[in-house]
Design a protein around this nucleic acid. Structure first.
Ligand SMILES: [Mn+2]
Ligand SMILES: [Mn+2]
Ligand SMILES: [Zn+2]
Ligand SMILES: [Zn+2]
Lengths: 134, 134
DNA sequence: CACGTTGATTAGACTAATTCTAATCTAAGA
DNA sequence: TCTTAGATTAGAATTAGTCTAATCAACGTG
């Protein structure tokens, strides 16, 4: 299991304590957190980090392919350390966001129906009640 | 073809010149505009309307079922006078958002694969290049 | 068809998320 | 170790959207 530092080096990203701390938090997280959630959590263990650095680091990690953005709600960005292609399910009661398999709807499937377009990606969000909430 | 005023009366929404102007603009629009785009366009013909009223009117029309929100980009809301269930295609070059048929991926399809969840809705966004841009 | 009530409109203050700025600091290659 | 390009920082600026409280107007009632 590679450490956050090893991931950064692999991607030729300059290693700093802040970046490693953000990446370490993200790698153990399945909650699709917002930048502010990341800031508050990392800030507890590393009180010197600033919000600007969290935003900067998110951009750096996005560019390096270590992170992706998920479009789940309008008011705030949520990020996802699972960079594989997949879809999402959002519980309308408790708000949790879970992963769903990409096979449910692939870009290829859309291509078959949309001949005149060049389809590169497809994202799907299902909404309803999760196992706990229904 | 019903007028904006007739639509408002049907939905028991108090008719005002501002609401009719916003609804008239929206009904002739397939661009999934943002609140600010609505404000700027309506403001040209109706210079007395305020931004607050545009936001208020959007909420009123959403509640009345004459409008829906589409989650397409993070930075701003986009609204859709097409209130039927459907999906969207966003062109990565020119930014236009077009409608896609709901049949491509329905809530029923997801239900079959997610037995433990109670799926209420499903939204899909495909991205790529449109006919003009590819 | 004037009246009165209830709800709509308004400008501008406010909030929250994000970006920018410019001074300071530091990772890492030479 | 030295150097420097790039990273970090606090706080200001920006932007989308909400709130406030004063004014206005739609429309049901008489
Ligand atoms: Mn995910
Ligand atoms: Mn649409
Ligand atoms: Zn739940
Ligand atoms: Zn295009």
């Amino acid at each position: 299991m590679r450490t956050p530092t090893q991931h950064l080096i692999e991607k030729s990203v300059k290693v700093t304590a802040q970046r490693a701390a953000v990446l370490e938090f993200l790698q153990g997280n399945r909650d699709h957190p917002s930048p502010d959630e990341i800031y508050r959590k990392v800030h507890k263990r590393f009180p010197y980090i600033s919000r600007a650095t969290v935003y900067n680091t998110i951009k750096t990690l996005l560019k390096a392919g270590l992170l992706q953005e998920v479009l789940i709600q309008q008011d705030t960005t949520r990020v996802d350390p699972n960079v594989s292609q997949h879809h999402h399910f959002k519980c309308l009661r408790c708000g949790t966001v879970e992963d769903m398999p990409y096979a449910l709807m692939t870009a290829d499937h859309v291509r078959k129906s949309l001949k005149n377009y060049q389809v590169q990606e497809v994202r799907m969000v299902a909404e309803g009640l999760c196992r706990q909430c229904r």
